[in-house]
């Protein structure tokens, strides 16, 4: 059975390594924080100005001066730091943040990503996404493999306005884990109960299959 959003987050959490500073985007990426593997320590950065972001507050802890980039109320953990937006993006562009997880509407086999604008619809803006994808070395896209119409979101070429070019290295969807290498999606792992044919059928871009493809270990 394909993964749900929590399953995608759970699989991405396995990419976390001890000592990582991590920036999580809005949507599925946010859920990654619920699945930190035991025995490792990571710190979450939110680009509006906090390192060491903690869980949502209790009603009594709610502080209007403490939010994440999704404008949700949060808490800070021991060892947290607050900083201004220029400093925050210095951390991001300066590659001090070790891993970035974000959602996407489309990803191309070249590693291009589109996730901020649909022509003809209300444009809300790119927020920090362009800065994040242009700079981070370790960018993982978390998304469903196909859109609501059942069309592939893994394409030869993005059709929507781009957020960044040749920047995505790994994609985790409800069907599979893929690396992006030499202009192709390289199939690494399958979701439980999903076949190679299922992934092929849902992938418009070039899909490379090398040897046996293991099932995700969740």
């Amino acid at each position: 059975m394909p993964l749900d959003k929590n399953g995608i987050a759970q699989r991405i959490a396995k990419e976390l390594e001890d000592g990582y500073y991590v920036n999580l985007g809005i949507g599925i990426p946010t859920l990654v924080a619920n699945y930190i593997p035991e025995g490792i320590s990571v710190e979450f950065q939110s680009e509006n100005g906090i390192l060491g972001m903690g869980p949502f507050p209790t009603e009594a802890e709610v502080d209007a001066d403490l939010i994440n980039a999704g404008k949700q109320t949060i808490t800070s953990l021991p060892g947290a730091a607050f900083f201004d937006s220029a400093n925050s993006f210095a951390m991001i562009r300066g590659q001090h943040v070790d891993m970035t997880v974000l959602g996407a509407m489309e990803v191309s086999e070249q590693g291009d990503i589109a996730n901020w604008k649909i022509p003809g619809k209300m444009v809300k803006g790119m927020g920090g996404a362009m800065d994040l994808v242009a700079s981070a070395d370790n960018i993982i896209v978390a998304m469903m493999h196909t859109n609501r119409e059942g069309e592939s979101k893994l394409l030869k070429k993005c059709t929507l306005p781009l957020t960044g070019v040749r920047c995505v290295k790994k994609v985790v969807t409800n069907l599979a884990v893929m690396d992006i290498r030499d202009g192709a999606f390289v199939l690494r792992e399958l979701a439980p109960g999903v076949s190679i044919e299922d992934v092929q059928q849902a992938t418009e871009g070039t899909l490379v299959i090398e040897g046996d493809v293991p099932v995700m270990d969740l």
Binding site: V123, A129, S135
Partner: peptide
């Protein structure tokens, strides 16, 4: 609409006497 990090840096630069700067954010996009 401009990338958030670019927005922050364009403010910082204005106050710091830096007339312009190069950033990777937005390359290859509109």
């Amino acid at each position: 609409l401009i990338p958030q990090g670019t927005l922050a840096e364009r403010c910082r630069a204005a106050g710091a006497g830096i007339p312009a700067f190069y950033t990777p954010a937005g390359y290859g996009t509109e």
